[in-house]
Amino acid sequence: MNIFRLAGDMTHLASVLVLLLKIHTIKSCAGVSLKTQELYAIVFATRYLDILTSFVSIYNTLMKLIFLGSSFSIVWYMKYHKTVRRTYDRDQDTFRHWFLMLPCLLLALLIHEKFTFFEVLWTFSLYLEAVAILPQLVLLQRTRNIDNLTGQYIFLLGGYRGFYILNWIYRYFTEPHYVHWITWIAGLVQTLLYADFFYYYFLSWKNNKKLQLPA
């Protein structure tokens, strides 16, 4: 464990807690894409399949449980909670996210580190996580105005993978044979997808204006 990875995990934890807190306290998920939340639940479900078989540390298992629990409860709130579900604008959140999953699965079957059931699904979860934010970014373009909490959620979510990139650089230079091209490229693509959001988020913060994404 290094400071970059810890910062990444804490930023990631903060992003899901911000979203869960927003939905739980104001009982609204306006501006939040259910499609992205469903993709994240699938990302964690396929990435943490080994939670029962391979034990790395208490921290590792605890965080896996938190990420699994929070992502599935966010999906539950948005789909089934009597008050929250009414605030979900389904006719705006129309990204065909199942079309994202198929290419990720095909790519995982083609490019992976080992051709085993767990490893292919783990690689699938990496590719899927890289694109999981797309429905949310599309929704933002459509709804144009976003509330602070949703903006903070996306900012933290994008930031965590940025910290992970620093972690991979650190590990590359400090651990012999630590080379994971697939993880690195997927992580880089993921972070780059947030680039324009970060740009407009920073502009709105600098000019102290409401965050507006261009149409």
């Binding site: 990631h12 391979s54 790395v56 580190e113 783990w122």
Partner: peptide, 10 residues
């Protein structure tokens, strides 16, 4: 790289 190290990250 040994098995566990492969996926010791979240």
């Amino acid at each position: 790289n040994n098995e566990a190290a492969a996926h010791d990250e979240l």
